[in-house]
Structure formats: structure tokens, C-alpha cells
Nucleic acid binder design. Structure first.
Length: 388
DNA sequence: TCTGGGGTCCTAGGACCC
DNA sequence: TCTGGGGTCCTAGGACCC
């Protein structure tokens, strides 16, 4: 038996712990549109009554709900509780997979003698979470991860739903196809064009028809629709990429400004890379024009790298070869992937130089972790930091 | 209405090798 | 002179999730 536990309005709930006066008010977590261009990261149920949804532009949210209280995000707080919640999950079973900051799976197989049946265990999880954190959560229980997740999403907020084995198809049949994680707007529209709007219709279409019309997607959807899609619970996985992006307060075409911001983003991304004792073989840049046209460019190096200077020169080259339109740019970003473990990769050609550079960067990272990121900045980024 | 930031996974085509 | 097929790696773009 798998439990999927989803914290209710996680960010809003935590902001309310910090400031109890936010209770019962329509609250949205995100950046105030006066400060920057933003979207709703998390909305309270009071705000949802007005049609406020996460990912909605904040300006729209405020228009829909003029009383909306906008609270800035505090990821340090959310991360702290993420680990707290994870520990609670792990007290029920060592097989825990956290899939995002506010949710995770617990494999409860073999814990029946300890915690009892599914309903009893589910209630116990909810109770312990509440006692230890003061937070509400919703638990979905089923034989597979996918069904458990759908169960929790149907039971929220502050609920518990158990889908007994062999009843999955009955539970899923009347639900809209969009409840299946992985089915977004595009796939839902595609399915609708085949007359498939409820999960039960996918099941009824049969494996052969699903596969012949939608390929591999159709195949797994058919299994999902019956509650028979199996995926392994993975207690730990390694991060596959590190990225940093930013949306400018106003669109720009200024190459010097773009270079300075790109440099700052690269430094931040490299710092994380070294912190995780890794090197990267692939550098990517991303840019978004004012009309939302988004371009990605990447290059894979023959040798893994972790030095700011090398990675920045690649990023800069990629960025300026990617900018072809003479239109305002609203966002740029840098990413590293193809990550390879152990920071101390040696390079036969300039090992001495490399080690020297690495020690310098280690020293910078130390200063930064004590005095903040801006304590050490390269020439190009200093100018920018002062402007902020 | 005017759209964040951090990720993962998939697909399709081209280069290249055997 | 015109033509294989399989495998791997890389790149760009897109769908999706929280």
C-alpha cells in the first residue's frame, strides 16, 4: 500500500503560522506586482473562491480579488518544513520519496502490524503531521503511486481517501482525464478530439486502440486509467540539472546589461554546482523575447567543468548567438546538466592552473556563505548589484 | 489578463560509427 | 553507382509538474 501525502496550501499555511492575522483572509504567495512581474505561487481557499489560481498573473489575481493579501515567498521557511515533514513520513516507513517541496509517497507495505489498516494508518499520518507541524495535509492511499496521488487530489483539503485494490477502475472512471498526472491541457485536448473526456472512456477504448492512436503515451494512459500503471518508489534520486533564470523588471536589448546579468546567474549556478561537489558537461542558456517566444541553446563540452570563467564564456557565446531578433528580451537563464559527481575532476593539460583556480573559488564560496552572495562579485556583476 | 522559477521527461532529426 | 540498418550522442523544442 502506497500513501501519497500532500500538504494543504503549504506556502499559505506556513505564512499563517508566521503571521496568524492572515487566517481566514484571501492570501496569495508571490511577488507583489508593484515590485516585479509575477504570478501566484500558492493561493488560499478563500482566494480560490474569487477565481484566484496558482500560476495566474498576480495582477489578474488582484483584479479578481481586490482584498487579496499578497505575501512574498520565503523559501528558507518552506524548505525547513519540507525536511520536517519528510522526517515525519520516514517515521512511518523508510521507503519515502519526496516528489516536491510539499508532497511525497510513503510505501507502507509490511507496516500493517505496526500501524494497522489503510484508514487507520492514513488518519495516524494526518494526526502526527498536525501535532508536529500544526499543518493540515491530505492523504491518498492505493496500491500504486499514481492512483494514490489521484486519490489525494480528489480528497483535498484536509482529507483521507483509500482506494481498495481492484476498485481502482470504478474510482477513476467518472473523473476527467486531466486528473491523471502527466495529462495537461495539450494532451486533454488531443484526447477530447478522440471523444475521450473521462478516464473510464480511456479504459473502454482498450490498449490496442490507445496505442495505435497515441503511441507510447496511449499505452501508459490505458494502464493508468485502470489503476494498473506501476512506477517504482525511489527514496533517493540525484539532481540532473541546475539552473537559474530571471525575468527583467522591464524588457531590454542592452547587451551590457544582459552580459552582467548572465554573469551573475552563471556565478550562482556554478556556486551550487561546487557546493554539490559536481562538474557539468553541458551548458545551456535560455532567452525569452517580449512576445514570449522562448529559445534554448546548449553545448556539451568534451571535458566536465565547474569554473565560473570557463562556463561563463560558453554561456556568453551561446547567448549572443541565440539572440537574433531585434525585439525586447524579458527573461534570460543559465543551466548546467550532464552533471558528473565529485568536484575534483582533473584535467591532464593544465592541472596546476585548474587546482589553483579551484582553491580560489572555494575561498570565494566560503566568504559568500558567511557574508552573503554580494560579498564577492566579479567586475561585471558589481555594477549590477549596486543598482539593486 | 499578461504571464515566475525550479525542475523532469519525451521526441525528432542529424551526425557519426560500425 | 547507389545503397543497408542499428546504435549512440547531441541539440532544440515542447509538455508537464509544483
Amino acid at each position: 500500500m502506497i500513501a501519497h501525502v500532500d500538504m494543504d496550501c503549504f506556502f499559505v499555511a506556513l505564512e499563517r503560522l508566521k503571521d496568524p492575522s492572515l487566517k481566514d483572509k484571501p492570501v496569495a504567495v508571490g511577488v507583489d506586482p508593484e515590485i516585479g512581474r509575477s504570478v501566484v505561487t500558492s493561493a488560499s481557499y478563500e482566494a480560490r473562491k474569487f477565481g484566484v489560481r496558482s500560476a495566474m498573473p498576480m495582477a489578474v489575481a488582484i483584479r479578481r480579488c481586490p482584498e487579496l493579501v499578497v505575501v512574498p515567498t520565503d523559501f528558507d521557511l518552506y524548505n525547513h518544513y519540507h525536511f520536517k515533514v519528510k522526517e515525519i513520513f520516514q517515521s512511518f516507513s523508510p521507503m519515502v520519496e519526496m516528489t516536491s517541496i510539499d508532497e511525497g509517497y510513503i510505501d507502507l507495505s509490511g507496516t500493517e502490524r505496526l500501524w494497522g489498516g489503510p484508514m487507520e494508518t492514513g488518519e495516524r499520518i494526518r494526526w502526527v503531521v498536525k501535532q508536529m507541524t500544526q499543518l493540515d495535509c491530505t492523504v491518498g492511499m492505493a496500491r500504486t503511486k499514481l492512483t494514490a496521488k489521484i486519490a489525494s487530489s480528489e480528497a483535498k483539503p484536509n482529507g483521507l481517501l483509500w482506494i481498495p485494490v481492484e476498485t481502482e477502475a470504478y474510482f477513476l472512471a467518472p473523473l476527467p482525464v486531466k486528473v491523471i498526472p502527466g495529462v495537461g491541457a495539450t494532451t486533454a485536448t488531443l484526447l477530447k478530439s478522440f471523444g475521450l473526456e473521462q478516464v473510464g472512456q480511456i479504459a473502454a477504448a482498450g490498449e490496442l486502440l490507445m496505442e495505435s492512436t497515441l503511441g507510447t503515451t496511449g499505452r501508459w494512459l490505458w494502464y493508468a486509467s485502470m489503476g494498473k500503471y506501476e512506477s517504482e518508489l525511489l527514496p533517493e534520486w540525484e539532481r540532473k540539472s541546475i539552473s537559474k533564470e530571471t525575468t527583467f523588471r522591464a524588457d531590454t536589448t542592452d547587451p551590457q546589461y544582459i552580459t552582467a546579468v548572465l554573469h551573475m546567474l552563471t556565478e550562482k549556478v556554478c556556486r551550487r554546482l561546487r557546493k554539490e561537489q559536481k562538474t557539468a558537461r553541458t551548458v545551456s542558456v535560455k532567452l525569452r523575447y517580449e512576445d514570449f517566444d522562448t529559445i534554448d541553446r546548449s553545448r556539451t563540452l568534451s571535458q566536465p567543468e565547474s569554473r565560473d570563467s570557463s562556463l561563463f564564456s560558453v554561456a556568453k557565446e551561446l547567448m549572443f548567438s541565440a539572440i537574433t531578433r531585434r525585439v525586447g528580451i524579458r527573461l534570460i537563464g543559465v543551466g548546467l546538466s550532464n552533471l558528473i559527481g565529485s568536484g575534483r575532476q582533473t584535467n591532464l593539460f593544465d592541472e596546476g592552473e585548474w587546482i589553483k583556480g579551484w582553491h580560489r573559488l572555494e575561498a570565494i564560496d566560503k566568504v559568500r556563505s558567511r557574508f552573503g552572495f554580494n560579498a564577492v562579485l566579479a567586475g561585471e556583476a558589481i555594477h549590477l548589484a549596486e543598482k539593486r
